[in-house]
């Protein structure tokens, strides 16, 4: 479904990505783990066009994403939940969700009803300003807004950031449920154990290069991963 081939991205003289290649197949959860500054977020931002690639190719569902405007990428049903819960703080929860259906408002009410069923808390707070929600609720809203665009695939950047362990578990359960409905997910996470436990496959990114890849189960037992990312 998503194929990234030999992707290079530079920030000035700094090489952020040095030939990253990865594939995500239909229906999978694939996670991308790695330390701070390894290039995880850069990879996602380059896929959705927020950063410009120096070379390499990105294809999603047969579409060349490097030739697609960032604002058009969502029309190909690829949604991005950016790092740090980017919601619209002085709009209400419902208005935030409406913005999610910005490019495709058909059946907006039906989709919103589905989102509310998945996140009953958001329904309770539909008239509340999004900036006054708790961290976990804001993350749910960010996911809900992505669902409003009826995506085939969602890119998620650090959904566990700044959340309590209990909420992290809740968010990861939600990711699994969303995936069970047939939405493919590429997940970027620092919380490697959690990410690997729900993923089918995973890639380890180190200073802009993929160093290890394989089934998530195998990676959980890989001595190198255990030592560097699982703290064992």
């Amino acid at each position: 479904m998503l194929t990234v081939q030999d992707l290079h991205v530079n920030y000035g003289a700094v090489h952020a990505l040095n030939g990253v290649s990865l594939t995500v197949k239909d229906g999978e959860i694939v996670s991308l783990i790695g330390a701070n500054g390894a290039g995880k977020t850069t990879t996602l931002r380059t896929i959705t066009g927020l950063e410009k690639a120096a070379s390499g190719s990105i294809t999603f569902d047969g579409v060349d994403l490097r030739k697609t405007e960032p604002s058009k990428i969502i029309t190909h049903k690829l949604a991005h939940v950016p790092e740090g819960r980017h919601i619209f703080p002085t709009m209400t929860v419902e208005e935030n969700l409406e913005m999610g259906a910005y490019t495709d408002p058909t059946d907006q009410e039906k989709t919103m009803e589905e989102v509310y069923q998945r996140f009953p808390r958001l329904r309770e707070r539909r008239r509340q300003l999004a900036g006054t929600l708790s961290g976990g609720e804001q993350q749910m809203l960010a996911v809900g807004r992505a669902l409003m665009s009826k995506p085939k695939m969602i890119l998620m950047d650090e959904p566990s950031m700044g959340l309590s362990p209990l909420l992290v578990k809740e968010i990861f359960d939600i990711i699994r449920e969303v995936n069970a409905q047939g939405i493919t997910i590429l997940l970027v996470e620092q919380n490697a154990r959690m990410a690997l436990s729900i993923s089918h496959r995973a890639y380890v990114l180190e200073t802009g290069t993929i160093t290890i890849q394989g089934d998530a189960k195998d990676l959980l037992n890989d001595p190198r991963v255990k030592k560097a990312y699982l703290g064992q």
């Binding site: 959705t48 927020l50 405007e69 960032p70 604002s71 058009k72 990428i73 969502i74 029309t75 949604a79 991005h80 939940v81 950016p82 980017h86 919601i87 619209f88 703080p89 002085t90 709009m91 208005e95 913005m99 999610g100 910005y102 490019t103 960010a142 807004r145 992505a146 665009s149």
Partner: peptide, 23 residues
């Protein structure tokens, strides 16, 4: 107007929602 206010609130979220921010 709503779109412009979304850009003011959070331009990253706005572009992720498919808004052409510069336009």
């Amino acid at each position: 107007g709503r779109t412009v206010q979304a850009i003011r609130e959070d331009y990253i979220a706005a572009s992720a929602a498919g808004i052409n921010v510069t336009f």
